[in-house]
Design a protein around this nucleic acid. Structure first.
Lengths: 160, 160
DNA sequence: ACCACGTATCTTGACGTCAAGATAAATGGC
DNA sequence: GCCATTTATCTTGACGTCAAGATACGTGGT
């Protein structure tokens, strides 16, 4: 009987006509990801990064040397609006972790490049971040993790 | 090969030392809940409600008649800060969906009460919302839904 | 009865986000 | 070559959120 069960029991009492099966799954998903986001943020914050900043730095890092992508490339990889991406880049640029480099091939565009400090920051952070993610999932057996991943993959395929 | 697989493949190439199993699960969870939140918001928005507003109205509705809870009660049921709850109540009060009623037993406190308009709004919205949640999970068999719910329950139990 | 402490709510200031629109440069049909 | 259209990025204004602190009231020990 967890918190979501209590919510479902309330609905059962007040609105017995409602089928709460989907509500249970969605409620657990929402609460779970709120908790997970807080745990993830805490580790990144100790490195002086928000999860938004880390998201951009990590995208640049995993794109490979020379660690440069246009704002449009970053946009297509990160599920945020263009205004949000501009803001993220502004913050990272202020912090000296990325710089805007002119794109010689297209003057509408710029390239966002990891600075040395940005590369160093993301290399440290990604190690701690992955270790933290492992910690958060360590309650599951290998089989359960595979099962969960499979179900999430199928669910996600509905949208992507 | 979904988007998360592509991200993991990039990391594999750039940082083969990192174990990406947990990252895959967490990444799918995050992308999935972003998509789900957008779908949920869309239905509620057609009723003139944000998911934040609906969250409060639904909590009041399922608490049963006379549909009154203190801000503190609402806080303990909704994973937000006290400042956020004050703001949510302010918005709902402006919209005429709830009202602040003096608590005769404790003058530090108030009771947040559904108005007639608020009750009507939540009754309509909750039906559409639940139907929408069912639509979003309809790709799964009964067995898969049960499996997913069980895994999420276990995961959530880590935190609650 | 008093007062120190606890409790309940609200305020403030800073962020991160989005939708919509503005700006500037490239492109393609003629 | 010109201009309408498309593309790439940035700007603006509004919202929702939080942490930290302020305010106001209740409570219990003396």
């Amino acid at each position: 009987m967890d918190r979501v069960d209590k919510i479902l029991a309330q609905w059962k009492r007040e609105r017995p006509d409602l089928d709460t099966e989907a509500m249970g799954i969605m409620g657990r998903l929402k609460r779970l990801t709120t908790h997970l986001a807080r745990e993830v943020d805490q580790v990144l914050q100790q490195q002086g990064l928000s999860s938004s900043s880390f998201d951009v730095l990590a995208t640049l890092r995993r794109s490979g040397a020379p660690y440069r992508l246009s704002p449009g490339d970053l946009l297509s990889m990160t599920m945020v609006s263009s205004g949000t991406m501009t803001n993220r880049i502004d913050q990272l640029e202020k912090a000296g972790l990325v710089e805007r480099v002119l794109n010689p091939d297209d003057r509408r565009s710029v390239l966002i490049a990891l600075t040395e400090a940005g590369l160093a920051a993301v290399e440290t952070a990604v190690g701690l971040h992955v270790a933290n993610q492992q910690r958060l999932t360590q309650g599951f057996s290998a089989e359960e993790k595979e099962q969960l991943d499979g179900l999430l993959r199928k669910f996600l395929a509905t949208f992507e």
